[in-house]
Amino acid sequence: MKLNQLSIFAENKPGSLNRICSILAENNIDILTLSLADTTDFGILRIITKDWEKARDVLTENRIIVRVTDVVAVEVPNRPGGMCSILDTLSKYSINVEYMYAFAATKAAIIILRVDAPEMAIEKLKADGSVKFVSPEDIFQS
């Protein structure tokens, strides 16, 4: 299912991630998973958190640039080749994966996909039947 990911602009220099993380920590925001894209000059921190609205607001108040991005979360079996069927489906319909990251639980892994057409991706993956969608409730329980 669709999730709201926070994308955060960070300068590529010591201390800039600390600042973002300590603002989130002070506001008691639990990060479920994250990914960091980096270039020589800047980085984009992408995080998945239950309290995305609160996180967005506290970061904005601290003049940190943050944007909410729609991403798709699916569960795949935690075994070799588990991810392939999803990518097959997406490529069959020419849906472009901008970036993705994953986190593993014991039996299954959850993959966060940023695609250029999230609605269509969900529809086609649903039709495909081989994947299990993960709702925010499933993801954030525990």
């Binding site: 990911q5 994308s7 602009f9 894209a37 270039t39 800047f42 984009i44 992408r46 640039i65 944007r67 991005t69 901008e98 970036y99 940023r114």
Partner: peptide, 15 residues
């Protein structure tokens, strides 16, 4: 300075 309007979650867009 980056602004809210210019920012994107994609590296390629910022580049």
């Amino acid at each position: 300075e980056m602004t809210q309007e210019m920012f994107s979650d994609k590296v390629s867009a910022i580049e």
